[in-house]
């Protein structure tokens, strides 16, 4: 029945493509979370009135974030070719997409982290200071736990953007569902393949959204 509707869709190839999409999304998501939280903290802490208030550092961090957010993703991939080649040893395949994916989405997530941290009640930070807390205690025991629902929602939004980016990266040969849809569907005029890939990507996005919302809700005790 399915093979009649979608004569050109080979299940084992589709599974491989799904696997590659998940691989790229999850690994780059992990990298994005780490880098994004670090950058977001840096933005927040060096801002005016922050714990490490520092005009120059804040200017540099904000500049870095703004520049990388301004570069369209497809151009960022091209721009990073030499760097990727140096780091991964190739510019093709799911692994080679990782640097561009992480560098493309970390600044975006960093802004979301910064917004989440800004929403932490200043009074609570002040209470921690009044108890004699060190800065790292304030970061790890106040700022991060108190902004956790926002950090998780941010991860959800970023993950979904990343799924989109993996499809774009697919067009230049990164693998995954985007790659599959382009090379096996679009270029061979097998539009049933394009259609199936689209549906699968939409399903993956929904799954991420559902899991993200569930976790954020569970964490929120406000």
């Amino acid at each position: 029945m399915l093979s009649e509707l979608f004569p050109n869709v080979k299940m084992e190839d589709i599974w491989t493509a799904i696997g590659e999409t998940f691989y790229m999304t999850l690994i780059s998501l992990a990298g994005t979370i780490v880098l994004g939280i670090l950058l977001g903290l840096l933005l927040f802490l060096t801002a005016k009135g922050g714990l490490w208030q520092n005009k120059i550092l804040n200017f540099l961090a904000a500049g870095l974030v703004n520049i990388f957010r301004a570069i369209p993703f497809i151009i960022l991939i091209l721009l990073l070719f030499p760097f990727t080649d140096f780091l991964i040893g190739t510019i093709r395949g799911p692994k080679a997409a990782l640097p561009a994916l992480i560098i493309g989405s970390a600044p975006f997530y960093a802004r979301l982290v910064e917004i989440g941290l800004k929403e932490v009640d200043k009074g609570v930070v002040e209470a921690a200071k009044a108890m004699g807390a060190k800065t790292h205690t304030i970061i790890f025991k106040v700022l991060i736990p108190e902004s956790m629902p926002a950090l998780v929602s941010g991860i959800t939004v970023t993950a979904i953007a990343l799924i989109g980016y993996t499809a774009v990266a697919g067009v230049i040969g990164a693998g995954g569902l985007g790659d599959f849809a382009y090379f096996y569907g679009f270029q061979r005029h097998d539009f049933d393949v394009v259609f199936v890939c689209t549906v699968l990507i939409v399903i993956i996005v929904f799954i991420f959204q559902f899991i993200g919302d569930y976790i954020a809700n569970k964490l929120d005790k406000r």
């Binding site: 209470a127 108890m131 106040v142």
Partner: peptide, 25 residues
């Protein structure tokens, strides 16, 4: 120190809020 708006950590239970200064110490 105590505050007008209490300034408790919403992410911690009563017990863990009270334990916080002890963790700091």
């Amino acid at each position: 120190m105590i505050f007008q708006h209490f300034n408790l950590l919403w992410s911690r239970t009563v017990r863990d809020n009270i334990a916080f200064p002890l963790e700091i110490a």
